[in-house]
Amino acid sequence: MNPRIARFLSALGPLFGLLFVIGIFSASEEVRPYFLTGGNFKIILTQTVIVAIGALGMTLIIVSGGIDLSVGSVVALTSVFAAKMVLQGFDPVVVVLLTVLMGGFIGCVNGTIIASFRMMPFIVTLGMMGVVRGAAKWMGNNQTVNPPKNPLNALMALSKPQELIPLPMGVWVAAALAVIMAVVLRQTVFGRYIFALGSNEATARLCGIRVARQKILIYALAGLFFGLSGLMQFSRLTQGDPSVAVGLELDIIAAVVIGGASLSGGTGSILGSMIGALMMAVLRNGSNQMGMPTYMQEIIIGIVIVLAVGLDKWRQSRGVRQTGS
C-alpha cells in the first residue's frame, strides 16, 4: 500500500471508532432524542475540553517516549491557585497567565530532573504526582476555595443549553490550540525532533539534537497545557478543589493512546488524540443518557481502551510486509 494512503487511513482509524460509538448510541430509539441533539453535543464538547487540552501536552510527551503522571495533581493545584488569586482580587488576565505558567513551571521541574539525572519519567512524575497533590491541599487548606462570581467562569459556562451554538469559549480555545499544536508537532523542527527523540534517543543525539534541552522544553510546554487544563477545571467548577481530577492523567493518556500514539514513543498525532478525548467524553455521556450506572461506564471505557489499541496493533501488524534478506 502507498505509505501516504496508509498514513491517512491510520489517522482515520480513531475517527471511524468515534463515529461508530456515536452510531451505537444513536441507534437506540429511546436514547436518540436526548443524545443526538445540539445541546447534548455542546455538553460533550465542553466536557472534553479539560481532557483535550491536557492531551495536547501529553501527546508531545508520549511521542517523545516519555509519560507524565502528575497531570491530575497539577490540574488540582492550578485550579486552587487560580481560585485563590481571584479571591485576592487579581485581574483575570493575570490569573490566566500565572496559572498557566505555574503548570509550565512544574513541567519544567519534571523535565529538568528527567533530563539531568537520566531518570525514568514514570518515576519522576509519579513522585511529582504526590508532591503536587499535597501542595494543592496545603494551598487550599484541605478544602475547596470559593471565590466570588468572576469573568473566568464564562470560559466553560453553558448559555442557551438547548442549542449547539454558541459554544463556550473553552471549546474554541481548545480547538485553536489543537490546530496550532498539530502544526507545531508535524511541521516544525521542534516537532520533528520530538518524533526523532521518541523513535530512538541514541539516533537523536547522533543527529545533533540537544536531547536534554529538548526534553525539558517538551515537559515545560506540556506543563503549560496542564496549567490551562487546571484553569478550565476551575472555571467549570467555579471553585478551586484540591481533591479534584484524581486519575485525570489516566484519562488523558487513554485519549492519546486511543488516538494512535504508542507508549514506546515515536508515533502519535494531535488529531488522533483529540478524537480520542472526544471518544472518552461521548462514551461517558452516551452511557449516562442510557441510564447506565457509573460502574458500567467504567467497565465499558476500560474495554474500549484495550479494544482501540488492540485493533490498532492488529492493523499495523497486517500492514507490515515481511522482507527477506
Binding site: 518524533f195 523513535s199 530512538n200 541514541a202 539516533t203 547522533l206 543527529c207 545533533g208 515515536g266
Partner: peptide, 25 residues
C-alpha cells in the same frame, strides 16, 4: 554533536539499528 555538525563533521554509527537510524520513521 550539534556543534560538530555545524562545523561540517558527520558521524556514521557502527550500529545502524540501535543508534544510526530511526527504524520506525
Amino acid at each position: 554533536p550539534r556543534r560538530r555538525l555545524d562545523q561540517g563533521v558527520g558521524l556514521l554509527s557502527e550500529d545502524r539499528k540501535a543508534e544510526g537510524l530511526l527504524l520506525g520513521r
